[in-house]
Write a protein that binds this DNA or RNA. Structure first.
Lengths: 148, 148
DNA sequence: TGCGCCATGTCAGTATTCTGACATAGCCTC
DNA sequence: GAGGCTATGTCAGAATACTGACATGGCGCA
């Protein structure tokens, strides 16, 4: 729309569009998860536990890109609702391996379907090759930023 | 690494990697902007104003993907530090067009350089064509999610 | 064995952002 | 001109995530 000025409009900056896409995805997910009474963070926690039961709080935090403290709040909420269980005492070290309850698995199944629908909608019109390249390119960006 | 289970590991989901990249970028930007005493939101506000002076609070909020209330807090902080000015009364309607002060322009120049360095690092090893395709693909994702 | 080092869980406080609500100004239609 | 509609700025409150700090458990090395 507008002509490039000194350095170019923000709309053409990779970082800007990346942020825009992430926000759009989050909003769309939030909308779909609201009927299930789940926040995006809570869903992320359930999904991670569904794919790898027994993850500790710290592992879940790293997997969901939040701090241990934040993830602990999420876990407490899920525990109170009976979707997740954690042993009260650590069997080894200090880690408390979390697991889904049957109710948690049910919730996850519905949430996972909803989220997968959002992803499908987001990638509509993109060929499998193009989707794979998006995945690879984003992974390369992460690697490039990771070291420092 | 791990074998695909029922639906595949999260690491292969577009949404997951998108979030990962957005977080990595935000952290990297935060690290570069910290010496300048700027948060990412504050930088976004300055950058938008630098490219289009006179934007209102609501316009800036949309441009930075936050609410009007959040952007207002950001603007107040920048105003107190003398980086941004706003008229005390609206000349037309209720909009208060914001503009950079000379000090704001100086800050923006330094911040912009730093952020551009981060983007360059993020896209290191990606051909111009690949960068453009990333931009286009992300824009397509945004469009696909936007309607609803 | 003893020590330093790192990771984990947790407590407390802070910061940032959001949702909800309200009054007001411009615009459009009747 | 009157009324509805939308957009804007703003106030208040809640939710969420963060930083800082601490004690504890496992691990490696002298």
């Amino acid at each position: 729309m507008a002509q490039a000025e000194t350095v170019g409009p923000v709309e053409n900056a990779v970082g800007y569009v990346l942020k825009e896409a992430a926000v759009a995805l989050r909003n769309a997910m939030d909308l779909e998860l609201r009927p299930l009474q789940l926040t995006v963070s809570q869903y992320a926690c359930l999904e991670l536990l569904g794919q790898r039961p027994g993850m500790s709080n710290a592992e879940l935090a790293r997997g969901a890109f939040v701090t241990r403290q934040s993830m602990n709040v999420v876990l407490q909420g899920l525990e109170e609702r009976g979707l997740v269980t954690r042993p009260s005492v650590a069997a080894r070290g200090r880690e408390l391996p979390a697991e889904l309850t049957p109710a948690g698995r049910d919730h996850l199944r519905a949430a996972s379907t909803a989220v997968r629908g959002v992803e499908r909608r987001m990638c509509a019109g993109l060929s499998p090759d193009r989707q794979q390249e998006l995945l690879d390119t984003l992974a390369a960006c992460v690697r490039n930023l990771d070291p420092r």
